[in-house]
Measured scan of single mutants.
Amino acid sequence: KEYCRTLFAYEGTNEDELTFKEGEIIHLISKETGEAGWWRGELNGKEGVFPDNFAVQINEL
């Protein structure tokens, strides 16, 4: 499994977007979303897309 840590808080504006606080760990599902600048991940049981410049991939939890 791949993970990323959020660098900033983000408020999702669409139903398919994740909302998160700074410093949260998102399970990274895919970097290929069909839309440049967006990754797909899962946080707190919800799957959605989020801007990749708001997070950095990490090697271990």
Rank of each mutant, 00 (worst) to 15 (best):
3 Y>L: 11
8 F>D: 08
7 L>I: 13
20 F>M: 02
29 I>A: 03
61 L>D: 15
51 P>I: 05
31 K>E: 11
33 T>F: 08
61 L>M: 14
26 I>K: 04
7 L>K: 10
58 I>E: 15
30 S>T: 14
58 I>M: 14
8 F>P: 06
54 F>P: 04
56 V>T: 15
2 E>M: 15
45 G>H: 07
26 I>H: 05
13 T>I: 10
48 G>C: 00
50 F>E: 01
55 A>S: 05
39 W>K: 05
50 F>P: 00
41 G>A: 02
38 W>S: 03
48 G>M: 00
26 I>P: 01
55 A>M: 01
19 T>G: 06
20 F>E: 00
4 C>Q: 00
32 E>Y: 10
14 N>Y: 07
49 V>R: 15
3 Y>N: 08
56 V>Q: 09
5 R>Y: 05
36 A>H: 10
45 G>F: 07
41 G>S: 02
29 I>E: 02
28 L>C: 03
42 E>S: 13
41 G>V: 00
46 K>A: 11
54 F>Q: 07
11 E>I: 10
25 I>A: 02
15 E>A: 12
56 V>E: 14
37 G>H: 08
27 H>M: 12
52 D>R: 13
6 T>D: 00
36 A>T: 13
18 L>R: 01
29 I>V: 13
33 T>A: 10
50 F>S: 01
53 N>Y: 12
60 E>G: 14
55 A>Y: 00
56 V>R: 10
36 A>Q: 15
19 T>M: 04
41 G>E: 01
11 E>N: 12
27 H>Q: 13
16 D>Y: 12
1 K>T: 07
54 F>D: 08
39 W>N: 02
40 R>E: 04
4 C>F: 14
15 E>Q: 12
9 A>K: 12
11 E>F: 11
2 E>Y: 11
7 L>M: 11
12 G>L: 01
56 V>P: 04
14 N>W: 09
36 A>R: 13
17 E>D: 09
56 V>L: 09
20 F>L: 02
3 Y>C: 10
47 E>F: 10
38 W>K: 13
36 A>M: 10
30 S>W: 00
49 V>G: 03
49 V>L: 14
42 E>L: 09
18 L>I: 05
56 V>N: 07
39 W>L: 05
61 L>P: 15
30 S>P: 02
12 G>C: 07
17 E>A: 09
57 Q>M: 13
29 I>S: 06
40 R>N: 02
26 I>C: 06
8 F>N: 13
10 Y>A: 03
19 T>F: 04
49 V>A: 08
58 I>L: 13
54 F>W: 08
13 T>K: 15
26 I>E: 02
39 W>I: 01
38 W>H: 07
55 A>V: 15
58 I>K: 07
19 T>P: 06
46 K>F: 04
39 W>E: 03
21 K>S: 13
55 A>W: 03
2 E>K: 12
11 E>A: 09
32 E>I: 10
1 K>C: 03
17 E>T: 06
10 Y>V: 04
9 A>R: 11
34 G>H: 09
32 E>W: 11
57 Q>D: 12
38 W>R: 09
21 K>M: 10
52 D>V: 10
36 A>K: 14
37 G>M: 01
32 E>D: 14
4 C>D: 00
29 I>F: 03
7 L>T: 14
22 E>S: 11
49 V>S: 08
21 K>G: 13
18 L>W: 01
36 A>Y: 07
32 E>C: 10
44 N>D: 11
46 K>P: 00
39 W>D: 00
9 A>I: 05
49 V>K: 14
4 C>T: 02
33 T>P: 09
16 D>L: 12
35 E>G: 11
45 G>M: 03
51 P>T: 01
58 I>S: 09
50 F>W: 01
29 I>R: 08
44 N>S: 09
50 F>I: 01
38 W>L: 08
59 N>D: 11
3 Y>M: 07
32 E>M: 08
4 C>Y: 14
27 H>T: 15
6 T>N: 00
36 A>S: 11
37 G>E: 07
14 N>C: 15
42 E>P: 00
40 R>K: 14
16 D>C: 11
31 K>F: 01
54 F>L: 15
41 G>T: 03
5 R>I: 05
7 L>V: 12
33 T>C: 10
22 E>R: 10
2 E>C: 07
52 D>P: 12
60 E>C: 11
53 N>D: 12
9 A>L: 04
43 L>G: 02
18 L>D: 02
8 F>A: 14
35 E>K: 15
34 G>S: 14
18 L>G: 00
19 T>A: 09
60 E>F: 09
14 N>E: 10
11 E>M: 09
19 T>R: 08
23 G>Y: 00
43 L>N: 06
21 K>A: 13
28 L>I: 12
4 C>A: 04
40 R>P: 01
55 A>P: 02
34 G>D: 13
10 Y>W: 09
45 G>L: 01
26 I>V: 11
28 L>H: 03
11 E>H: 11
1 K>N: 07
3 Y>F: 14
11 E>P: 02
40 R>C: 07
4 C>M: 09
12 G>M: 01
34 G>A: 09
32 E>F: 11
6 T>I: 05
58 I>T: 11
37 G>K: 07
2 E>N: 14
37 G>W: 00
19 T>E: 03
57 Q>S: 10
